[in-house]
Design a protein around this nucleic acid. Structure first.
Lengths: 102, 102
DNA sequence: CATCCGTGCTACAGTAAGTGTAGCGAAATG
DNA sequence: CATTTCGCTACACTTACTGTAGCACGGATG
């Protein structure tokens, strides 16, 4: 019975969330998807040409968490992902003030 | 003129933020620090015994971003880190609903 | 039919990042 | 002095990510 390499050991939702969001590109992917659905290649371009291996891995995980989905228009937010995107937006506003105090 | 391995190429504050938060343990560290200041070793224990190498690296980066600081009571939030902690709290509330729709 | 797109995605070797254990030097306490 | 606790480092090992190439599929076009 082997445990997954890096998935949350706890059951707490926040931990599941922090686990995946703490992986490289996760936050960035969600951030970029705010501007609408896009194809794998488009998304890749928006994410500084992240390697397709990594992108695919993250997309798979984010889909499993029901944060994004995929249809004929490409990848995009689910209802939940959309809500999470809102949180990122408020974080964006915050970061502007934070940055002023560089 | 070499560029830093993984620091943001853009100047946008949100990117700087997502960059560091997207590194392993960053979000977790901030999450754990909500419960108050703690020593290196305490923090390490709270973070599933993360390797001291990684912990030290993240703490260093988070200090550079003025999100946490260190005094005789240990590591803890700065004013900015504290605000970011609030955001994590609302994210925690959200995650509970999200989790119900597993 | 064949040929050309663009799609999501995989293979694979190389590089970077994180792990786990041991332990150091400094400061505080007895 | 010895002991404890502190932040932190060394180092070999393992895992994660990168960068490039290209595959299989489906739809359009000739």
């Amino acid at each position: 019975m082997k445990t997954a390499a890096r998935e949350s050991k706890t059951v707490r939702p926040i931990m599941r969330l922090l686990d995946i969001l703490g992986k490289r590109w996760s936050l960035r992917i969600l951030w970029e998807l705010r501007s609408g659905r896009m194809t794998f290649r488009e998304l890749r371009t928006h994410c500084d040409d992240v390697s397709p291996t990594s992108l695919n891995q993250r997309l798979k995980e984010l889909r499993e968490l029901k944060l994004i989905d995929h249809d004929e228009e490409g990848f995009g937010f689910t209802k939940w992902g959309s809500e999470l995107g809102e949180h990122l937006l408020t974080l964006n506003d915050w970061s502007v003030d934070w940055d002023k105090d560089s």
